[in-house]
């Protein structure tokens, strides 16, 4: 059916209520219009969304890193902070030997292996500091406080949902150039999810 036209002006619309009655053919046409139009619009959107979601399918791994020599951690129960140096990848850039975090190593009297805590606060990921004056770990952001053993000073009264996160420690023997054996401390630098009670690695 040809639509009525006005030769000198815009097309004259069919008035409301004057539409032709629906037929089987007009339904199919309408359905086809909706389906093809939707596909035309949604395909690029879908491709875009898929690309946008790509971070969800990438898994990161926890590197094992040498953080100190055992000599640097005397068994005096004092926490000492050490940077964690490892290669870091950021999308298309690879940064060799970057500080990707920090760990506190503590070796109590008579212990062969130090305990390691990541300096990242389990609450929101700020860097926890250690004040030797009152022997407490303190987060500068929301003032969570931890004891030297990593537990929360005021338990559930702290903003942090759990104690500081311990990291697996390994002692490896290294041969120096002069042939001497030196013990070094390695940690598996796991990045834990913040803000929850459980320790779940963020992958």
């Amino acid at each position: 059916m040809k639509s009525p036209t006005n030769p000198s002006g815009p097309p004259v619309a069919i008035k409301r209520g004057n539409e032709p009655p629906p037929t089987r053919r007009s339904f199919v046409t309408a359905a086809a219009a909706v389906v093809t139009g939707t596909i035309a619009v949604l395909t690029p959107l879908g491709v875009g969304v898929a690309a946008f979601l790509s971070p969800l399918f990438r898994k990161s791994q926890s590197p094992k890193v040498q953080v100190a020599l055992l000599d640097q951690v005397p068994d005096d129960g004092q926490p000492r902070v050490f940077p964690v140096i490892a290669d870091r990848e950021d999308a298309w850039t690879r940064y060799p030997a970057q500080r990707i975090g920090a760990v506190y190593l503590i070796r109590n009297k008579g212990e062969a292996k130090p305990t390691a805590f990541t300096a990242k606060c389990p609450h929101a990921g700020c860097f926890i500091g250690y004040s030797s004056g009152n022997k407490l770990f303190k987060c500068p952001c929301h003032t969570s406080t931890f004891k030297v053993d990593g537990t929360r000073l005021r338990g559930d009264g702290e903003v942090a949902p759990r104690g500081m996160d311990p990291l697996p420690v390994e002692i490896r023997q290294e041969a120096a150039k002069d042939g001497k054996q030196l013990a070094s401390v390695w940690v598996e630098f796991i990045d834990f999810r913040t803000g929850i009670k459980e320790r779940i690695p963020a992958t």
């Binding site: 979601l53 971070p55 969800l56 990438r58 950021d90 999308a91 298309w92 963020a202």
Partner: peptide, 11 residues
């Protein structure tokens, strides 16, 4: 992860 485009801040 979606907001920051990965598990850590970057490009």
């Amino acid at each position: 992860k979606l907001a920051i485009g990965g598990s850590a801040y970057g490009h």
